[in-house]
Design a protein around this nucleic acid. Structure first.
Lengths: 213, 213
DNA sequence: CAGAAATTCGAACAATTGTTTGAAACTTAC
DNA sequence: GTAAGTTTCAAACAATTGTTCGAATTTCTG
């Protein structure tokens, strides 16, 4: 009947990804995970070693390919004749996030939400294990944006990049800060295309705004 | 020696506010709180009733005055002769947040960080208890922005407000999404004035960007 | 000062947490 | 088919969790 269901490791990862997003790392117990994944309680410690290691495994499964996709887009853009524009650079980040959000096989928007959550929670996993590993990501974008927006000072550019990635992450994660207050006024459809339609112009405008002294 | 230290309730609230920000709600135990606050373990349940009620108390202590300050600024702005501009509206939100961040007596930037964290975590407290209570906040800003940016469709305006408040919240909370990756490149000084210097132009540009079809 | 009310205290409660263990079941290889 | 290796299983582990209780203590009130 259900012959080709994923193996134990994959089922644990899928359920963990969803539960970590819904309830957070601390509030998600191994019994919740193993119960919904229909595996034995000891399976987590057998396959991953510990709950912390499971969390890291959930992360590395998606973050690596996502960052590689961004860097590949960056390579393609820098290969063109004209220098990269700010909009082009933004799209090299948007497109992989969009593709991930629209792919149910890769958890859809779940992982971006988990990433956003973990960033805000300031987890030690992101501070220690993954920060060094993926420092290339930020360095590449830093250089590229410096090239695309040469009129900005390093301080201003750094701040605008910080703000731009901040709003992009939160948009993809669906963190509706206003949804809490506005009852039914804004229906923030989770449609990823809709996100991009309004997100990209907003970010581009913020990045390319003329400096005022 | 230390005669006028705060009373038990205040000490619990102060310590809880800090620990909830540092470790999150679930990962903060009552024993951590009572130990650092130098009160008995049972004091929390005696004064607040439960850990959930303590969390709500930590919230209501700061959120109410903050929102009222924003609405007061809004009243003052709407009382002027000219209609409110987008920048003026943004500043009615920025100024109270800035004042709170710079006031150690009110926990400084702690509460804004807690608010940001709780928004991302999608806590039921913000969905249920506080959303109805402070719906006036969003409604007032919705009407005001509609007046300041009449050329925008309701859909576009809603999205831009969502993105604007999203980036403002995260900026004040100090959620450096790039800090994780960039090692020492960007030193995002926690100086609130510095935040505003770069945050406000970014948000204004995104809000007032001409619509492109 | 005496009595009442409010607060603090130490101790214990049941429940849940992540983790470990050794045996059972299964898969693979010769 | 049998032995070796891999995976699953039920059960238990010590530790920690939020909460409760009654007695001690302090503070307020007359």
């Amino acid at each position: 009947m259900e012959a080709n269901r994923p193996d134990t490791v994959t089922r644990i990862l899928d359920v963990s990804e969803r539960l970590f997003v819904e309830h957070g790392f601390e509030a998600t117990s191994l019994r919740m995970i193993t119960q919904q994944a229909e595996v034995n309680l000891a399976a987590v410690n057998y396959h991953f070693g510990s709950k912390d290691a499971l969390f890291e495994a959930v992360f590395t499964r998606r973050l690596g390919p996502l960052i590689e996709a961004c860097l590949a887009e960056l390579d393609a853009l820098e290969g063109e004749k004209d220098g990269p524009t700010a909009e082009g650079l933004v799209m090299t980040f948007i497109r992989p996030c969009l593709a991930l959000s629209k792919d149910p096989a890769r958890g859809g928007a779940l992982f971006v939400r988990l990433l956003s959550r973990t960033l805000v929670e300031n987890h030690r996993l992101l501070r220690e294990s993954l920060s060094q590993q993926y420092s290339e990501f930020a360095q590449r974008y830093g250089v590229a944006f410096q090239q695309a927006l040469p009129e900005l000072s390093l301080e201003t550019l750094s701040w605008r990049m910080h703000l731009a990635f901040s709003v992009m992450f939160n948009a993809f994660a669906g963190n509706d800060v206003l949804k809490i207050f506005m009852r039914s006024q804004i229906v923030t459809a989770r449609d990823p295309e809709m996100i991009v339609k309004h997100l990209v112009p907003f970010v581009i405008a913020g990045l390319t705004s003329p400096v005022q002294e």
